[in-house]
Design a protein around this nucleic acid. Structure first.
Lengths: 226, 226, 226, 226
DNA sequence: ACGACCGGGACTCCCCGTTAAT
DNA sequence: ATTAACGGGGAGTCCCGGTCGT
């Protein structure tokens, strides 16, 4: 579990990755506040459990009012899910080679997003995924969140594709996300002892193998050439 | 909206499956009550929206007390998700040929569960999936629900398998479920006009194609973590 | 300010007036709880002001949860407005002579409702009207409340009347209510020193005089016989 | 929905009244902004309902910040109530003949205020009163508002009167306002089809008739309090 | 088994005060 | 000198669970 060393020597806590366009001071401040709240929340969740921690307690610990908590995180679940790599994704996208097959693109984005958090603050990632694993409501929201991300990504893809093609990409991306989820789960169960990125690769390989064993159903009912 | 008649003539599609063991009269009564509650709930959801309908209103419409609602459905979401095929699954399982590859088994179970509802009461299935599609919380709970089903199924599988093998089955099953979800979504968006089972087969074919295009990552091990 | 002496010798606190049909034990209990809550609320309002008192404080003083407060009183305003004579009104109605002109009926009902509270617990009535007078939101809700009462009463009136007749009754009732409001205001400003019922009669007389001085506008624009 | 042309040929109905002192440019600008905000608000209220529209949405539609909304309108209700005739009232007052009986004065002012809006922008008046009728909180605030107006007017009346006289005026004015409210309600329920000013006259006539049927209570003093 | 009653936490909305930016 | 941004706080609604009596 190698802790993150920012390549830039910036001293401010929570340096972000090199950005195409830097964030305004307001945005920076907002992110810092969110991280502070998250820090307190994760601490309390770890100590007393997710369900046994109320927003009021989190707010008190973070020295804000309950009302303000909701200004930053629309729901209690979000304080677990949030991380800064959301911002990173579009950067990743910009760096992918043109013409890369969409499936590979999805995999690469997923991998980078995870790797980034993993390198930067593995403890926080671990704490978040302990809860993610244990609390259905949080997990559910995560899935929803990821699903939205996929749709946005597909819509953002260059070129014209048919519905069938989009469906293919969509399902591939979903399967990759499930694989990532499984990797994260295993990693979290090992308490961060295993190497997350290796687990991720293994999960994707397992996915490829498993799906390859399915027989296409198509010919049974459609005229499309066998 | 005509109930599905499979063009292939396969007998399993939607036919009322022979039950291994019949239900007790108490169980029957419970199921009838649940269906009544669900009927009223779906009617109200359709008329005023899911979020604008309170449990109190559902209870009033179904002539029960709010408290009793929760005796039948642990949450508001469940009244959308619930259907009788839960009971059907173990029957399906019992009828699968021994030695069937797990992936195929998962696909067959999924297909039968959907086909059963589709043949029996397509309008209700449609109403439920309209909501499922529109309300994130319900969708989330559905995913959770399905995920649990997979784990139970895997644990129930005969024979010994290693962790790697289980992971493979797990991810394959998840991918199939996602495909089923996509098919259901498309079907629901078409307002039931399209043939659900054909959509399901198409989705699974799309999944197979899409995942086949991924390059295994395994061999490269861990040249660089990031 | 003569305190109420219940004509019945019942020892239970808060005896209600002789009822056509007695209330169930559940209803009795509910009314007692509401009075307890109101007592605490009025005490706090008197001590610290209406706006400076939170529901949480009232709930704490009444030994209930805030949630329960709202089960009894839908809004904070209602805890000021509520009194038991709501229940009394239909009794009053039943005792009015058949064929009484609607205007007189309205006046009599209003008078009895006020007189009942006035005789029974003038201090409470005074405390409530101090707030009613001082807090616009409460006063507003009171007007709304009274208006509803009038509409219900009109609908409950026997016999067939045209729209024009209903309008006449409606406006007369409203005017009487305003007179009652003015009487209550004056009474409250005198801190209960004046005789409320005399004030009420004076206000209604003033209303009659004042309106009598208006010239009908009708003939200017309508064909109806002068 | 044709603006009213009074059959009587009276010139005061709805004509833009000559202003005693013109408004400053700042004031003009303020009024224009308020009208813009109100326009957007009424549009949203009509489309999605009063309660389902948040201040944030109104602010967004009017391109201002939520905070700024409150600089123009102290509450959400006020955006419905506000209109420009407030300014008109003192003009009306100045033009009334000296020595006019107070009751007639009240009636005339009320009538002019309504007629002015009715002639100027009947659609807006209708939209406002649809909400006024449907949303208790708004209606309540309107009553409060009108009541204040009455008190200010009475205080502004020339000459010395006793308390009894003031009470008479007060109650008469209130009754007239209720009549105006009833007329507005009927008009609004007819969707603006009926002639508002005729309805107003009819309502006042009904009031006069109804109150005339009441017997003065005065002489009987206080034979029995209950 | 059911219903009535109550508790509690999440969450939204209105509204206001303070601070910051223009 | 306005305007926006931010934070705070109270009211109110909803979901859901526990308890008790029937």
């Amino acid at each position: 579990m190698s802790p993150a060393v920012s390549p830039t020597g910036e001293t401010d806590d929570g340096a972000l990755p090199p950005r195409t366009k830097p964030l305004g001071s307001r945005e920076r401040r907002r992110i810092r506040t969110m991280r502070e709240i998250q820090t307190e929340a994760l601490r309390l969740f770890g100590a007393r459990g997710y369900d046994n921690t109320t927003i009021e307690q989190i707010a008190a610990a973070a020295d804000i009012s309950p009302r303000t908590f909701f200004r930053y995180f629309p729901t209690k679940e979000d304080v677990v899910l949030w991380d800064e790599y959301d911002v990173v994704i579009e950067d990743s996208l910009a760096r992918r080679p043109a013409g890369e097959p969409p499936g590979e693109l999805m995999r690469a984005i997923t991998r980078e997003a995870i790797a980034w958090q993993y390198a930067r603050d593995p403890d926080r990632l671990l704490a978040r995924h302990h809860i993610l694993f244990a609390v259905p409501a949080v997990r559910a929201r995560f899935v929803e969140f990821a699903r939205d991300g996929i749709e946005r990504l597909i819509r953002g893809l260059p070129g014209e594709r048919g519905e069938a093609e989009d469906l293919k990409i969509h399902l591939t991306a979903l399967a990759i996300l499930d694989a990532a989820g499984a990797a994260l789960d295993t990693w979290q169960r090992s308490n961060g002892k295993e190497d997350l990125l290796i687990l991720l690769d293994q999960a994707i390989d397992a996915l490829i193998e498993g799906v390859a064993e399915l027989r296409p159903a198509g010919p049974r009912r459609r005229s499309r050439a066998r």
